[in-house]
Amino acid sequence: MAAKPLAELIDDLLAPALAAQGFAGRSVVTFWPEIVGERLAERTRPLKIDWPRRRNAPGETADPATLVVRVEGAFALEMQQLGPIVLERVNTHLGWRAVGKLVLKQGPVSAPARAQALPPPDPAALARIAAQVARVEDSGLREALARLGRAVAQRRKAASDDTAS
């Protein structure tokens, strides 16, 4: 049996919990910082999506859902003013006008875990990376590959430093 990436398995594991909160998938929760921006994401969390209870008759347009968001108390007024923009961004992310109303619930918002800074890669690794990508003609692709190489080298160095200690 071949190993599966964790990303393929996580949807199946989280689906029941997210469905209980009205989320069809994990994308709104997972991509919340990308949807609303880092500044809003630090002070808010999507809690659930309340879908309308009644079913529409054939040909009748569906009523939009209500997005319930936890927000830190002092930030609630600003979030209320930004509500139309947040709704637009959520709907753009979902690809249709799913959410039409925003409800704010004041309360503490736990800070997302910050990744520890990785040590810089050693100069020999940087030289190898530069030599490997030097033949790539497209400058954007060359720089992207170099960034990827530096990130891999940093992770490898951090892993080797952890096992050495």
Results as ranks from 00 to 15, higher is better:
39 R>S: 10
159 A>V: 07
18 L>T: 10
97 R>Q: 15
21 Q>R: 15
102 L>M: 01
84 P>H: 11
48 K>R: 15
85 I>T: 15
58 P>D: 09
112 P>A: 08
158 A>S: 11
144 A>V: 08
29 V>W: 03
24 A>G: 10
61 T>L: 09
134 A>Q: 11
71 V>M: 03
145 L>Q: 13
36 V>L: 05
37 G>T: 08
123 P>W: 02
61 T>S: 12
70 R>C: 04
15 A>Q: 13
92 T>K: 13
63 D>F: 04
33 P>V: 10
40 L>A: 10
127 A>W: 01
9 L>W: 00
158 A>W: 01
133 V>N: 04
132 Q>M: 11
165 S>E: 13
103 V>M: 09
165 S>W: 09
41 A>E: 01
23 F>R: 06
87 L>R: 09
97 R>I: 04
110 S>F: 00
25 G>A: 12
149 G>M: 08
113 A>G: 03
153 A>C: 08
93 H>L: 10
35 I>N: 03
140 G>D: 10
159 A>R: 13
139 S>G: 03
150 R>S: 07
10 I>Y: 01
139 S>A: 15
69 V>P: 01
52 P>V: 04
101 K>W: 03
75 F>G: 02
59 G>A: 06
106 Q>D: 06
121 P>M: 01
79 M>C: 15
17 A>K: 12
78 E>R: 13
1 M>A: 14
34 E>W: 05
32 W>C: 05
85 I>M: 12
71 V>A: 11
144 A>Y: 01
78 E>Q: 14
138 D>A: 08
89 R>C: 02
6 L>F: 11
162 D>N: 07
11 D>V: 04
55 R>W: 04
59 G>Q: 04
2 A>F: 07
156 R>S: 03
147 R>P: 00
112 P>K: 03
127 A>T: 13
26 R>E: 09
75 F>I: 06
50 D>C: 06
55 R>L: 14
157 K>C: 01
108 P>Q: 11
5 P>R: 15
98 A>E: 01
118 L>D: 04
52 P>H: 04
159 A>C: 01
149 G>K: 06
149 G>Y: 05
31 F>D: 15
55 R>H: 08
12 D>H: 13
55 R>T: 14
114 R>S: 10
44 T>R: 05
59 G>Y: 02
115 A>L: 09
28 V>P: 02
9 L>H: 03
